[in-house]
Every structure is written in structure tokens, then in C-alpha cells.
Design a protein around this nucleic acid. Structure first.
Lengths: 205, 205
DNA sequence: TAAATTAGCGTACAAATGTACGCTCAACTT
DNA sequence: AAGTTGAGCGTACATTTGTACGCTAATTTA
């Protein structure tokens, strides 16, 4: 890659990073202005357009990138689970860690999921869908579930985890422990219930 | 109430209604400006201050009012359930109806739950908490649950319902049917699972 | 009836925003 | 070596925003 393209990429990164850094509990993506982001990235407002058509395009990039980051981290965590122990417990702990080290990545997904732009909502759903289908396949194979039961179960699990994540963002570290415990309990409910429903269906034939 | 106070109340309502009416899939509360709301309500921008300190105060009013509306409608629906039939099924159907007739009320709760203002988030949580504790008490009495198991179960149920609501907002009427069915399945999972866990605990003593 | 209160208005202003336009100059192509 | 490209900049402008201030006129209070 030429010097020129390299520099361009660097600036582009600066923009994305600047936007991520400006996110916080008090600042959502949609409240960021193009000028603010450019300022933080150290370029002139008008130079922004050399990289993105508008703020929307930046945001979608962030959603995609953020989703990827999250999935990679979760996958890494799942490897730990293969060494033995409760899958649920380990997944929850991993998730909390991911959350703590990337709060802003999680924030944008969470907020834009119920956001004002259809494109954003779709992008977030797509990311969540990745989680769900990965998990559904896992359960289908592991626990011999009917596809649609596996699907419903996986979806319920993911939703519960995401929502707990949302609450966790506002909590102190000590309170998070209790939250994680309750989440584990809820996930077990779903898993146990799914198993019971599956049994009932199997016996009926 | 004097003529004067009556007129004031009327204008205040006009403001709240104007704000609710401007909400849509493409327009969140935080994207509304004070001037827009005033314009829609048919008063001068500066007159806004005769009723609310700022947009934030308006928003909090809307959250409180919206939560109240939702709870009243759900309560009315629960009466239908007492006539017999699956509590879960009837509650879900009621919820979908409520959603369809008050999409904007639901939207503001949903969006501000992950919003940018701590006050808003707290207000929404408070509303959701109402739902949860009502349901937890119901379950505790009805199904002899341990308090904390009842609590975890109720929370899981409410979260699943709310999330399905969020998805439903983006769906056509025909697709909502399938969504409702899956939701019912998920709720049954939680209920069944909670029951099984309860049994296990009981047997252990 | 006289005085006090106040909802609503119009004017005004500073601040911030998105973006059009044209320039520069370093990097790349031929 | 000569010519082309394009990232980044500065200037400029029309819009929109929140809100300060002071007035009016109708209602309420005394």
C-alpha cells in the first residue's frame, strides 16, 4: 500500500476512534456532530467528506466494526469453556468482561437498536442475529433440539444477556456480581424449560 | 378550576400531545427541538417555558404518563384473562394490541431506556419495575415461588415481552402473528424452567 | 373597582451546524 | 520530467437552535 493510501487509512481510523471515544453514558452517536468528530480527530470539518458520505455512513461502519469485535471476543471466551465447566457461567463471565473493556462498542449497538434510522436498526439486528444463529446451531447439535425450538431458545438467551448488559453499564462493579448471578439463573430457566418442552414433544410421538 | 388554570392545562396538554405526535420510527424524542414542539402545539417558542423548565422535563412527563397508560391497558387486559384461558397467551395478545394502538408511547420508553440521560433511564426503569413487581407478586402467590426465583422469572418475562415489542414495531401485521407465537413459546420456556428449578430446590430440603 | 398576576407573544442574539467552493501541494502515474 | 489526482484546508453562508428581555391583555385577587 502506497504512502498516500496509508495516510488516508490512518485518518479514517482517527475518525472512527474519535467517534467511539466521544460515546459515553451521556453521549449517544446520534448526538455527535460531524464537526465534533472531525475536531476530535484533528482534521477540518470539510475533510470528513473525503472518508464518509455523512455521519450515517460513519455510524454504520462503527456498528459493523463493533459487532465484529464483540463476536471475536465472545468466540475467544467460548474456547475457555471447552476446557470444562458450565457453559452458561463461563459465557456470562466472558460477556461481562467484554462489556467492561468495550463499553462504548456495546453502547452504540444497544442504543441504535432502538434508534431512529432503519439502516442502523437493521445493522444491529444483523449483528445480534449472528449471535443467535451461532448459539442455535450449537444447541441444536448439543441438545438435540428441534430447529425452531433451538431458535426460540437461542433468541431468548441472547436477549436476556443483552439486556443484562444494558443494566450492567449503569452499575458499579460490586453490583454487577449480583446481576451476573441473576442472569445465570434466568439462562438456566430458559435452558431447563426448553429441555422440558422438548421432552414433552418427543414423548408425544 | 378557574378559567385561567383551565386554559393553561389545555396548552400544556397540547405540548405533550404535540411531542407524542412527532415521535415515529424516524424521530426520537431527543431529536425533537423545543421550537418544533412549540410550533406543532401552536404556541410561541418562548411560551414553552411557562409549562416546562426545558425539554428534559417534558420528556420525563411523557415517560411517566406513557408508563401509566401502558400499565392501565395491561391491567384491563389481565381482567380478560381471569375469565379463563392461558394467562400467557392472553397477556401477549393484549400487549400486541396495546403496542399497535400506542406505538409512540412504547417508542419513547424503549428508546430512552438506553438513552443519553440518566434521569430518563431511571424513569423508564421505574416503569418497567412496576411491571416486574406486579408480575412477581402474582407468580409468587400463584405458583409458590421463592421470592428471588419469582423475581428472576418475572424479570425475564418482562424483558422478553419488551424486546418482542421492539421488534414488532418494525413488522407488518402478518409477521407479528409469528412473532407473538414465538414469544409465547419463549415465555413458556421460562415458566416451565422456573417451575422445574423450584421443584429441584424444594426436593433438596 | 383598583391592583397584581401571569400566559403568551415578538424581537433579538449568540452559538453551532452541515456543506458548497476553490485552493494547495505532496503523492502517484505515464 | 511533466501531468494528474486527491487529501486536507480555509472561507463563507444559510439554517436552526435555545433563551433573555420586555410588552400586552386578560384573569384573578384584594
Amino acid at each position: 500500500m502506497g504512502v498516500r493510501a496509508q495516510q488516508k487509512e490512518k485518518t479514517r481510523r482517527a475518525l472512527v476512534d474519535a467517534a467511539f471515544n466521544q460515546l459515553s453514558a451521556e453521549r449517544s452517536f446520534s448526538s455527535l456532530s460531524l464537526r465534533e468528530v472531525a475536531r476530535e480527530a484533528g482534521i477540518a470539518p470539510t475533510s470528513f467528506y473525503r472518508h464518509f458520505k455523512d455521519m450515517n455512513e460513519l455510524g454504520l461502519t462503527m456498528v459493523d466494526e463493533g459487532g465484529l469485535t464483540l463476536r471475536q471476543m465472545m468466540r475467544k471466551g467460548r474456547q475457555r469453556a471447552e476446557a470444562g465447566g458450565s457453559v452458561i457461567r463461563i459465557s456470562v463471565d466472558t460477556f461481562i468482561e467484554v462489556l467492561e473493556s468495550n463499553p462504548n462498542v456495546f453502547r452504540i449497538l444497544l442504543h441504535e437498536r432502538s434508534g431512529t434510522s432503519a439502516a442502523f436498526r437493521a445493522a444491529v439486528e444483523r449483528e445480534i442475529e449472528h449471535f443467535i444463529s451461532e448459539l442455535a446451531h450449537y444447541t441444536e447439535a448439543q441438545a438435540n433440539r428441534t430447529p425452531d425450538l433451538a431458535r426460540a431458545q437461542a433468541e431468548a438467551l441472547v436477549i436476556l444477556v443483552f439486556n443484562a448488559g444494558a443494566s450492567a453499564l449503569d452499575l458499579k462493579r460490586s453490583e454487577r456480581k449480583a446481576l451476573a448471578d441473576q442472569l445465570v439463573l434466568q439462562l438456566r430457566m430458559v435452558a431447563t424449560g426448553a429441555e422440558a418442552l422438548q421432552q414433552k414433544m418427543d414423548n408425544r410421538t
